[in-house]
């Protein structure tokens, strides 16, 4: 049976999309059939790490929501980012065209359509894993993604606002009976005491910290332009990402 994994952050800029892309790639490399859906319709970005060129995207999640296509028609095979065997790996992007974003913002949409879309995608592409790159913050779309997830990955920075907001999300996820929850602390200064940070966070949230990702020059330089866990597998951050992927595969 397919597993649904949502990656969520209370605020933007935490590295959510990059983490989603890297995790999906690692799970695909383990031989699983994987799809990623970018539900951050207002500020799409996960197409960048997958090197999905703008001109290749003729149909996106937006067009599915508007009833202009089936969801699998907006799914693009991005398995070429994987070295060697693995996958397939699909991406359902959100449109990066300003006019499309503007239309969604203006008209809104029925988030229940997303539920139908996820269901259809899993069926049509015979998925083992569906990764949902959610919109930051708490809204109807993110609550839906959290509610249907088997695993919820909460990503945050070591920042007071992130800590406060994530406490809200953890509470909501508990009330929605999410079967599995984990936290990932990203952009942590290498000079910090990681063990102490992990202990502090776990004591406060009572949620396991799956990984602490250090802020490194390679990550800053690579930014969104590639999959760091594939390009630099020797980095501490890449090893941590693989640990998260292994944990998701084991659940």
């Amino acid at each position: 049976m397919a597993k649904i994994v949502s990656i969520h952050s209370f605020r933007g800029g935490t590295g959510k999309s990059n983490l989603t892309a890297n995790l999906a790639a690692q799970v695909a490399l383990a031989g699983k059939r994987v799809a990623v859906v970018d539900t951050d319709i207002q500020s799409p970005g996960i197409h960048m790490p997958f090197a999905l060129a703008e001109e290749r995207v003729t149909l996106a999640l937006n067009h599915f929501i508007w009833g202009e296509c089936a969801i699998e028609q907006a799914a693009y095979d991005v398995s070429s980012v994987l070295p060697g065997h693995g996958g397939p790996l699909y991406l359902v992007p959100s449109s990066i065209k300003i006019s499309d974003i503007g239309r969604i913002l203006k008209e809104g949409y029925d988030v229940r359509l997303l539920n139908d879309g996820f269901q259809a995608l899993i069926e049509k592409l015979k998925l083992d894993y569906l990764f949902i790159d959610t919109h930051p913050g708490v809204n109807e779309e993110t609550l839906l993604s959290i509610a249907i997830s088997d695993s919820l990955v909460l990503i945050l920075r070591p920042d007071q606002q992130d800590f406060q907001g994530t406490a809200v999300t953890v509470e909501l996820a508990r009330k929605l009976d999410v079967p599995d929850m984990m936290m990932v602390i990203n952009k942590v200064l290498p000079s910090m005491n990681f063990a102490e940070l992990r202990a502090k966070v776990e004591a406060i949230y009572h949620v396991p910290v799956a990984a602490i990702l250090p802020l490194t020059p390679e990550l800053v330089q690579l930014a969104s332009s590639g999959l760091v866990a594939i390009r630099f597998p020797e980095l501490d951050a890449s090893r941590e990402i693989k640990k998260i992927a292994d944990r998701i595969l084991a659940e």
Binding site: M1, A2, K3, I4, N115, F118, Q119, I122, E123, K126, L127, E140, L143, L144, A147, I148, S149, D150, L172, K175, L176, D177
Partner: peptide
């Protein structure tokens, strides 16, 4: 959690989880 939407989602969460994956 006091919103109708959340209450609806909570009531249907398990069902939605099963339905989304069960169809395939």
């Amino acid at each position: 959690t006091g919103s109708d939407y959340f209450k609806n989602i909570k009531a249907r969460a398990q069902e939605m989880r099963s339905r989304v994956k069960g169809q395939e």
